[in-house]
Design a protein around this nucleic acid. Structure first.
Lengths: 338, 338
DNA sequence: TTGTAAGCGTTATCAA
DNA sequence: TTGATAACGCTTACAA
């Protein structure tokens, strides 16, 4: 059996509180006994039991993670899982554990907030969520520090990529290629990013005096390949084909391209396509996908940094958005106008 | 502030222990007071604090997860993240939380075992790991119930797909297509599955009197696309081309195919290729990849089921392997011999 | 600088 | 069937 704090206190002829202070680097202790204790602690491999610590202190060193709120997309989504991965590594470095928040625990159904309460989490990461979910709203408006890498709402700090910049870059690039007939294909507007990018698209097209109609902005009915596929086929049927399509998700872009192909339209020779995200596979797709890279590693780290900051500072909650830059990765699905 | 167990005991003129018994469904209580308590508990939304429970009881209702043991592959790997996802859902149903095990927590570096001890986990899931990692070995040989969905070693129960069946199915299929010149490309042999599949390949080829040499089994130097790519190019240079290649990972198979393509060899017209895993993208690759499907959802669920079983039964640890069936998904990277 | 003692919120063991 | 009471292992005022 491992020694407990009382054991090592007894062994050293000191009191448990002294040990505690030394181990936690708190209070004033003579460097003499500090060293003596530290040495012995190392020898015994003494480690404080997590639950006892949490029970008797305010901090739990635990961060709850809301992930699969939208059941349509789970852990397998490479975009979000990379954010999570990088977040986890960052906070671990500062001593935090990461626990998945679930809403049904055994027989009782818990709200996210209830779960956070019984676990006494120090903070919450919303990797992705649904702004209409009452559970999410409740958590965001609670006293728990929260950070989001997806949704944006009042009282919430979000770390997201700059969608306006992304859209601008894409259109810039399209123009440099010599195109003016540009379309946008977006995913379900219930997702914030899909929604705002169409707004920005319209704004920028107007600013640049590029013609477009509402028919040039198509919303898919889902997040996957097949949704893109049927949209690709629809586009192929238009009398007036676009020169370039900006698709707001790589996965959907794959579908659009294949849908186009199925109607004998070649990418990039007939139409150029730009994706969004730069997930791992885009490099290996045929044609390799030109796309807007969102740096998921940076998102995770930045979210972690901001969350830890607000845990330590305990500031009042307000809405805040931290924008991260995006970059265009040029590959083979786009081609200069000839 | 939420009520604690003493509060609701006082309110109801009962003792905390009685409340505890009722909430935990333990001990004998008159159905009269049971109902009264349950009603009031629901009203107040009383929920027991997790840490206090863990401290005073044996169980933590927590399962530790070892994931990124091999730093080369992280959460973004769709194969493993899906297993994790399905595992998590299963155990949540039985009241278990899932925490990521990390080896550096703040300033001190912990072994996996130490981490499990301070967290008092009830069991451990090894989603993927390295059998040579002393941390893993220590955990597996400890008293903690463990389950693995990847590695196989003494004292460990593993839930994995039947690699022998997979290889057999692949060769069966190749023969049905009319081929006998079959190669295998495998990933680094440090990964169990990559290793055993080559063993099974040799065994089956012999059994069927199919000719092959050691040159027909190629090991890549990595897990990714590019490793496959260079192998694909190497194969293209052979004087005696194979008719079909079994590649033990979809991702590597993508690379092999593109490497072949780069040397003007078409798949499937010149050579057929079978992958392994059936990750999400294989359907959308060009050509759509014929592959051996490993049912990750089932793996996660089965692993969860087996782990909970051994948590509850506390049997002595022995090596055990639960094999799950695989199936071949026929797509466009393979073609009948003409 | 160190020690005492009272919590933290449950569960578990006995008694009643 | 219910209730005292002692753990569980640590932190933290406060006292010495």
């Amino acid at each position: 059996m491992n020694k407990k704090i009382v054991d090592i206190a007894r062994d050293l002829n000191l009191s448990p509180s002294t040990i505690s202070k030394i181990v936690n680097n708190t209070g004033r202790i003579s460097s003499e006994t500090r060293e003596r204790v530290l040495k012995y602690v190392k020898e015994c491999g003494y480690l404080a039991m997590s639950n006892a610590r949490i029970l008797s202190s305010k901090k739990s060193w635990t961060i709850g993670v809301i992930y699969s709120d939208i059941s349509l997309i789970g852990f397998e989504h490479p975009f979000f899982s990379r954010i999570f991965q990088s977040f986890k590594e960052y906070v671990a470095h500062y001593g935090y554990d990461v626990v998945m928040i679930v809403s049904k625990l055994g027989s009782n159904v818990l709200t996210y907030l209830e779960w956070c309460q019984i676990k006494k989490v120090d903070g919450i990461l919303i990797v992705m969520g649904n702004i209409n979910n009452p559970n999410i709203i409740e958590v965001v408006n609670s006293d728990y520090p929260c950070i989001s890498t997806d949704i944006v709402m009042p009282n919430l700090h979000s770390v997201i990529c700059d969608d306006y910049q992304g859209v601008k870059i894409a259109i810039d690039y399209a123009q440099n290629l010599g195109f003016s007939k540009i379309m946008m294909v977006t995913g379900p507007k219930t997702a914030r990013s899909f929604y705002v990018r169409t707004e920005f698209f319209e704004k920028e097209m107007k600013l640049r005096n590029l013609k477009y109609t509402q028919d040039d902005i198509i919303t898919t009915d889902g997040f996957g390949f097949s949704s893109g596929y049927s949209v690709g086929q629809d586009i192929a049927k238009k009398e007036n084909l676009p020169e370039l399509i900006i698709v707001n998700s790589d996965v959907i872009a794959y579908g659009v391209i294949r849908g186009l192909n199925s109607m004998n339209i070649d990418v990039p020779n007939d139409i150029s396509v730009i994706g969004y995200d730069d997930i791992e596979f885009s490099e290996n797709f045929t044609p390799a996908l030109t796309t807007i890279l969102q740096d998921t590693k940076m998102m995770g780290e930045r979210a972690a940094e901001e969350l830890l900051k607000s845990i330590n500072l305990k500031l009042p909650k307000t809405q805040k958005i931290t924008y991260l830059p995006v970059t265009l990765i040029e590959r083979e699905s786009t081609k200069k106008k000839i």
